[in-house]
Design a protein around this nucleic acid. Structure first.
Lengths: 246, 246
DNA sequence: AAATGTGTTCCATGATTTGGAACATGGTTG
DNA sequence: CAACCATGTTCCAAATCATGGAACACATTT
């Protein structure tokens, strides 16, 4: 194990997650390293171009280099490549915000999005992570997951709002979702926001991702969502075909 | 200089930029390191979760961890935060694709975008880098850059298509752009695509970024772009105010 | 002026990385 | 089927390189 690499990435992480540039001493204290050690690490990251110094304060902040690297990765992601055109279609048909999410453990990660001209106040942003039980796109994926029950239980025990979840009811709902291939949430975890999501089936035959259409409850009514079922399913199966075909 | 950190990031870069997962030997040969060294580095990155192995081939590919990190960075970027709401407004008014770009040396980096329901075939994607002389958003920023002439010259000497650029004509055009605060390209570097861009003035009083509206020439005609001048300028000044105010 | 808080430099010490060689594995070819 | 090649993996002695402590520089506060 290359400990220096671990240290370097830990420091980079710390800087990238910070709201504001940080100083050497603060970081050293926080991560239990020597000042001189942190300083040298930062100078290294500086010369490599991953970190820059605030002109005024001399504190260290992240550059966009990490982001550029990350975009390379996500844009090459097979799921993103496969889903993009069909998300675009869906957006054109609905004029609403369209999301692409994948599952990572019990979390749902927002991979890609097309924003509506008039989006809701709190649109999840690509890169965000939320418990998969919250959004429709997470639920539709969980429903197709073999270890769904385990994940739900873990959530119930670890998350502060976990106890609000009824296991039996949730599993029953998952059965319905599997049957229809569609999950719908009405003011589920974000008040006033409705959402309809379908699952993309990948090579392994499990739900590798989900496409969701979201919007304010006034615009995206229950009836409207019901009428969108086929379009969402369509986008998902076509994306799945593209994914498996290539 | 922590050489191990440099090595680790170099390997990570190599993997993230690759089109397909790569093997140990290939990487070792390519970057002049010992096989065993690369192998240990990869195992480190593997346990840290930045790299994963292809189940079938055993080759190494990137995970989304770098991307998540990068999104944190860009979403906290003051320019993105300041510009987002006004890009949204512009998108709502025009129903066209709206871009946010910044200048990095002679390059233009696409920071953020809102895609139109019917976008053009080749929409630049966030994270992309193009010579600033190509798109309208790059040109409007160059026009306000003190060392614009230098950048144009560097481009003329280094880029394969550099000789197509006439220095005097370009500088004259920049003067016009500075006067209007707006750059317009018609089928500029991408055939059939028109674009109108304005500059966001940052704290230092220079063009720190640009907002652009792009679309197919049939839809985004010259007359339509002329009628959008004020809306684009508005979005830019408001974004600039937000940026400097906060 | 003394005291605290920064960030930075220096260097002997020793832990860690290094590169080579040997081993393991799987696929290819005569 | 055996010999071969290419690949990934493990091991270890040698020495390079990271380490942490102390000392320095600089600014701000008391």
């Amino acid at each position: 194990m290359d400990t220096a690499i671990a240290k370097g990435l830990k420091v980079l992480n710390r800087i990238a997650h910070a709201d504001a540039p940080v100083g050497v001493t603060a970081m050293a204290k926080e991560m239990g390293l020597e000042k001189s050690n942190v300083h040298r690490t930062l100078t290294t990251l500086l010369t490599l171009g991953y970190v820059e110094r605030d002109a005024a304060t001399g504190r260290y902040g992240p550059t966009l280099k990490v982001w550029e690297l990350g975009m390379k990765v996500v844009m090459r992601h097979p799921m993103v490549r496969a889903a993009r055109p069909f998300m675009q279609m869906l957006h054109q048909q609905t004029q609403e915000t369209v999301h692409l999410t994948i599952l990572d453990g019990g979390d749902c990660i927002y991979l890609d999005q097309i924003r509506a001209p008039m989006p809701v106040r709190t649109t999840p942003v690509p890169g965000h992570r939320v418990p998969a039980l919250f959004p429709a796109s997470g639920r539709v994926q969980l429903a197709f997951q073999p270890n769904a029950e385990e994940i739900v239980n873990t959530f119930r025990n670890s998350h502060p709002r976990g106890k609000e979840i009824k296991l039996a009811a949730t599993l029953r709902e998952f059965a319905t979702i599997r049957q229809q291939g569609i999950a719908i949430t009405e003011s589920g975890w974000s008040a006033g926001i409705n959402s309809i999501a379908g699952a993309i089936i990948d090579r392994a035959g499990v739900a590798g991702a989900a496409i969701a259409v979201s919007g304010p409850a006034e615009r995206l009514t229950r009836e409207r969502m019901d009428s969108l079922v086929n379009q969402v399913l369509n986008a998902c199966t076509q994306a799945g075909d593209t994914l498996r075909g290539s």
